[in-house]
Amino acid sequence: MISISQVSKHYGSFQVLTECSTAVKKGDVVVVCGPSGSGKSTLIKCVNGLEPFQQGEIVVNGISVGDPKTDLPKLRSHVGMVFQNFELFPHMTIADNLSIAQVKVLGRKPGEARERGMKLLDRVGLVAQAEKYPGQLSGGQQQRVAIARALSMDPICMLFDEPTSALDPEMVNEVLDVMVELAQEGMTMMCVTHEMGFARKVANRVIFMDLGRIVEDATKEDFFGKPHSERAQQFLSKILQH
């Protein structure tokens, strides 16, 4: 579904990604973790072309992301993405947030888009908030709406960029619950997160990044059981201490 091969990226002389390679198969849930500044968010943003890269190739569903001839908006329209800061559109109601791209990008009729939006809103337990504006919702609620908005486009896979790290601790679980459910339904997911509980529960594979390189790319059992690299061992011992 997603194949990343030998991807390198630099800002001027600063190397952000160095020869990253991995693959995500249909139905896989891959968790990407690592210390801040390790390039994990940059890597996931390269997958739908939000960040350009200079070397290597990323192929999503048979389409090369780096190819200048690729119609990126079209590719992105069926790759869902959820951001750290939710990024709901603050000048639109929740219902409009859910339907705007369906209407403007997919060409669905407004009534049909609204219905689909409501169904997804119900799924994340927020139908009652449909006519409110994003600013009136809590962070956890906003992120659930953001997930519903991405799902409204009927994506073939979902990218999550630290979806819970801007949330108050008591709201993390309501968002993770939605993500776990999604994973169990077989959605292909690539997820940058520090939530190791989530990784243990639903991930097939865990990728560990440091200084722009993929240091460890292992099954969940191997990663938590016996990580190869010293850097990953240190990282795990630090975040699992408490």
Binding site: K45, N48, L50, P73, K74, L75, R76, S77, H78, V79, G80, M81, F83, N85, E87, L88, F89, I100, A101, K104, V105, L106, R149, A150, M153
Partner: peptide, 15 residues
């Protein structure tokens, strides 16, 4: 307007 808004709109496939 924050860059994230542009990223989110682009990620939904808007031109």
């Amino acid at each position: 307007v924050s860059k994230g808004q542009m990223a989110a709109a682009s990620a939904l496939g808007m031109r």
